[in-house]
């Protein structure tokens, strides 16, 4: 494992911790898209089908369990926790996420490395992860006062994707036969979706102003 991959995983882990911190201690999920969180839960469920059959390392298994557990518990908090769910901006979070799931599934059935159930589900999870942030970005645009934790959560998620790209570049030059077009293209698409957000995030940081995305 190289430094970019480790940094990427840690950034991903921090993003989840920031979100759980907000939900668990402040008992608020204001500005957080349940649609995006449900998509992430689906992404991890589809991708980690091999969790008990394909052992890679203890690190890998533990991280998979953390991402599965955290994504499903965030969804549970936002849907069912009697205090947290009151702060959910239901009327603003209107992105129809079902419209993302079906095209991703069709694309995974058409474009994959191997036509097996696990491989198609794995590919589906990559395509879905690439677009899963969209409901969250739409909600951020509609939110007048984006609080710091929500802004940091999205920033950390974007940073995780950027670090994964550096990891792929590194692996491409250091490992023989390391070519994963599906992973790379969907990962690149995913990272590009954050470009706009990054621009405004750094502007607000530079000018010491509250983060605000123009509609």
């Amino acid at each position: 494992m190289n430094i970019f991959r480790l940094a990427g995983d840690m950034t991903h882990l921090f993003s989840v911790l920031v979100l759980l911190l907000k939900i668990h201690t402040i008992k608020s999920c204001a500005g957080v898209s349940l649609k995006t969180q449900e998509l992430y839960a689906l992404v991890f469920a589809a991708r980690y089908l091999d969790i008990f059959t394909n052992y890679i390392s203890l690190y890998n298994t533990v991280m998979k369990l953390i991402f599965l557990g955290s994504s499903f518990s965030i969804v549970w908090y936002m849907r069912y926790h009697k205090i947290v769910r009151r702060s959910y901006d239901k009327d603003q979070d209107t992105f129809r996420h079902y419209f993302l799931i079906l095209p991703c599934l069709l694309l995974a059935l058409l474009i994959n490395e191997k036509f097996t159930f696990k491989e198609v589900m794995w590919t589906f999870s990559l395509y879905l992860e690439a677009v899963a942030i969209l409901p969250q970005l739409v909600l951020l645009q509609r939110t007048r006062n984006i609080d710091n934790l929500t802004g940091q959560y999205v920033f950390l998620l974007g940073a995780y994707r950027a670090l994964y790209i550096l990891n792929w570049v590194y692996r491409y030059f250091t490992e023989p036969h390391f070519v994963h077009w599906i992973t790379w293209v969907s990962g690149l698409v995913q990272t590009l979706l954050y470009a706009d957000f990054f621009y405004y995030y750094f502007q607000s940081w530079k000018n010491n102003q509250k983060l605000h995305l123009p509609a």
């Binding site: 995983d9 991903h12 890998n60």
Partner: peptide, 10 residues
């Protein structure tokens, strides 16, 4: 192992 389908990333 099969290089194409080995998924060692998260």
């Amino acid at each position: 192992a099969d290089i194409i389908t080995e998924h060692d990333e998260l």
